[in-house]
Nucleic acid binder design. Structure first.
Lengths: 351, 351
DNA sequence: ATCATGAATGGGAGCGCTCCCACACTACCT
DNA sequence: AGGTAGTGTGGGAGCGCTCCCATTCATGAT
C-alpha cells in the first residue's frame, strides 16, 4: 500500500493541490478531509484518502502553521539545568505521563531546559515567537518570572506545582498536605513521639504544604510541634545530610524523621548510620516521592507516593483544553482550574 | 529599552513589512538585516535594528520555514523507551554536549523517543513531513531501519555509534577498541592472568569492537583468549549478574573481569561479593563509561571514560555542516565522515 | 410549482516570510 | 564621453496551507 508516487525524485513532495487534482476535487475539500471535517460526503472522502495514500501525501506543517496560526506543538519547560532533570526520577515519570497522554494527539512535545541565564533568554525569545501552542511548567520557584511572561504573551500554560495558594495559572498538584499528614500519622501510630522533619526547598509551595501537614498532624494528636525538630532542606542528598546533622545535634533524642524527599532521606540515613542510629529500631525514617531509591534503600524506605505519571496526564488534559478554549479569542474562561491528585503512603521496613 | 509597540493588544505581532515601514526601507532590506547579510549599508542596518527593537519584532518561524524550506530545528532521536534514556547517564551527557554546542546557534533541539512500535510510526510520519533539518541518532542497533529511512528521505543525519565498520551515515564514535585494550593492558600489568569479559549487547558495533580490543590485547601479551572467559551481557545490571554467575561457574579461577559497562560491572560486583570474592584482592574489576556509578561504587570502580560530552559536540558540528552542504542540492559530498574520539582509562581501587 | 433551507463543494485571498530580478547609483576603467 | 562593474536597495512572486464566501444541487415546506 502506498509509497511510490512523488517519492522517488527527492525534490517534490506532493501538495494539497496535487492531491486534489488526483482525486478530482477541489483544494478545500482535500483540506476538509485531512482535518477530519464532517462536511464531506463518504464517496468524496474515500477518493481523497485514496489519492493521499497513492501520492504519499504528508501535510506541510510550516504552511499549516502559517495559515492557521498554530504550531501543534507544546513545550515542557524545565527551569533547571539538565543534570537535575536527569538526577530526579520525578521528571522522567512526569515525562512518561505527558508522553503517553500526548500520543493520541497530533501534538509534538518539546523538552526545553532553561537552567542558566542564557537559556532563559533563548526561551523568552522562543516563546515570544509563539513557536508553541502551550507550555507545561515543571518545578517553578516562587519568584520565577516565567509564569508572568507566559501570561503576558497569552500563551496557554499549566504549572505542575502551584507557586502559592493563589496561583493564577492553571495548575496540577499532588496533595502535599495530605501526604505529609499521612506520613506523620503513620509514624505516630508506630509509637514515635519525637518526629523531626527535614523540609524541601521552602520557596516551593508544595514543600510548605508538607510542613503544614506535618504540623497539623502533630497538633491534632495533641503534640505541639517542636520547632527544634524542623530543619530546612533542599530536596538534595547533601541537604539531607546537612539537616540531619543539625537535627541530631539539636535533638539527639529524636526517634523519627520525615524527609522532604527520598533523596533527602538517603542523605539523612547516611548521617544516622554514621551516628550509630539503627533504622528503624532507633529512628524511623519516611521519605517522599516513592522513587526507585526508596525501594532499593537498606532498609527499604517508607515513602509517600505522588501519582506523578497521572499528574503528567492531567497536565496535558488541562493544557489541551486551555488551548482549545483559547483559539477563538472568546471570553477568557474565568474559572481557573486546579487539579489536586491524591497521594498514598507506601509503608516499608524503615518505619 | 524596547517592549512597547505592537505588544499591548495581544493580537498583532509586528511583521517584516511593518518593520520596513517604520525604518523607511523595503521588506527585502529588513530581511537582509535580520539574516545578517553583508550587503546592507551600516546606516540602513542601524535604522532597521532600531525599528526592530522599538516594535519588539520577532520573526515568524512558520513563515520563514515555509518560504525557505527549512525548520531551524534538529531532532535527537533515541530509539529506546524513556526509561532507559533516563537510567543511563550516557544519554544525559550526550544531551549536555549537544545542548552546549547548539546554544551558539539559532537551531532548536527536539528530543524524540521512539521506543515502541507506535512511536516509531509517529517518528516516520514526523520525518516524512520534514519537520527537522537534521537528525542525531543515538544508540542504534544493527538491524534498525531508521538510518535507511533517513537516507531515503535525504535528511542529514549523524549517528552516535556506527552500526558497522562500513557505516554509510556520518558517524561519531569513541575508540571502543582502544578503550578495551587499555583496560585489559591495565589488568595484565597488574599481574592478572585470567581476565574475563562481560560484553555489551553484541548487536551494538561498539560492543563488538570492545571484544576485539580485549582479544587483541590478550593475544599481543602472548595469551590466547580463552573463550570460556567471554560471556555476552547487554549493558544492564541484571545482565551483569547473569553473566557473572555463568563465568564463575565456568571459570571459578578467574582473577579479573572487564565489564562492558559500569552498570554491568555493578551487577557483576554483586555476584562476586555473594560468592565471597573480594575486590580487588581476589578479582579485579574494570567497567566502561566512567559514570557516576563507578565513582560511588564500593570499592570505587576503575573504568574507561568515553568523552561523551565531546562526542555530543562533535555530532552537532558534523550535522550542522551536513545541513549546510545539503542546502544547495550540489553534488552529495562523496567523503563520508567518521569521527573517532579517544577514550581514557580511569584507574580506581577496584583493580 | 415556488421558495427557503441546508449540505457538499470549488476556489480566492492571504498568512509572513525568502528568493531573486530589476533598478538606481557610484566608482573606475578606457 | 561611453562603457563596465560592482553595491545597495525595492518589491514581485510564490512557498502550501486554512479560512471563508460563493455556488450548486437536492430536499422539504408551502
Amino acid at each position: 500500500m502506498a509509497s511510490h508516487g512523488a517519492r522517488g525524485r527527492g525534490g517534490g513532495r506532493p501538495t494539497l493541490e496535487e492531491v486534489a487534482a488526483r482525486a478530482g476535487v477541489g483544494r478545500g475539500t482535500v483540506s476538509r478531509v485531512i482535518n477530519g471535517s464532517p462536511r464531506v460526503s463518504d464517496a468524496t472522502r474515500a477518493a481523497v484518502e485514496a489519492a493521499v495514500a497513492e501520492l504519499g501525501y504528508v501535510p506541510n506543517t510550516a504552511a499549516r502553521a502559517l495559515a492557521a496560526n498554530r504550531t501543534d506543538a507544546i513545550a515542557l519547560v524545565v527551569p533547571e539545568p539538565e543534570t537535575r532533570f536527569f538526577a530526579e526520577p520525578y521528571f522522567s515519570d512526569m515525562l512518561r505521563g505527558v508522553g503517553s497522554q500526548l500520543s493520541d494527539t497530533e501534538m509534538q512535545l518539546l523538552l526545553i531546559f532553561a537552567g542558566g541565564d542564557r537559556e532563559r533568554r533563548r526561551l523568552a525569545q522562543y516563546l515570544a515567537a509563539h513557536r508553541v501552542d502551550g507550555v507545561l511548567l515543571v518545578s517553578v520557584h516562587a519568584d520565577d518570572p516565567l509564569p508572568d511572561l507566559l501570561a503576558q504573551l497569552e500563551i496557554p500554560a499549566v504549572i505542575s506545582g502551584p507557586r502559592s495558594a493563589g496561583e493564577t495559572l492553571t495548575s496540577v498538584d499532588s496533595d502535599n498536605y495530605g501526604g505529609a499528614r499521612s506520613a506523620v500519622e503513620h509514624l505516630l501510630s508506630g509509637g514515635r513521639t519525637r518526629i523531626a522533619h527535614i523540609t524541601g526547598r521552602l520557596d516551593v509551595y508544595g514543600a510548605q504544604r508538607r510542613v503544614d501537614g506535618y504540623r497539623d498532624a502533630l497538633r491534632e494528636a495533641g503534640r505541639e510541634a517542636d520547632e527544634l525538630l524542623v530543619e530546612p532542606g533542599d530536596f538534595t542528598e547533601e541537604g539531607g545530610r546537612r539537616a540531619m546533622s543539625v537535627l541530631l545535634d539539636r535533638r539527639p533524642d529524636l526517634d523519627a524523621v520525615f524527609a522532604g524527599s527520598d533523596v533527602t532521606a538517603a542523605g539523612a540515613r547516611q548521617v544516622l548510620r554514621e551516628a550509630g542510629r539503627r533504622i528503624p529500631d532507633d529512628v524511623a525514617l519516611v521519605g517522599y516521592d516513592d522513587s526507585a531509591i526508596a525501594r532499593h534503600m537498606d532498609p527499604p524506605l517508607t515513602s509517600v507516593r505522588q501519582p506523578i505519571v497521572e499528574m503528567g496526564r492531567a497536565m496535558i488534559d488541562l493544557l489541551l483544553s486551555e488551548i482549545a478554549d483559547h483559539r477563538p479569542p472568546a471570553s477568557r474562561g474565568p474559572e481557573r482550574r486546579h487539579a489536586v491528585l491524591p497521594t498514598e503512603l507506601v509503608p516499608r521496613a524503615s518505619s
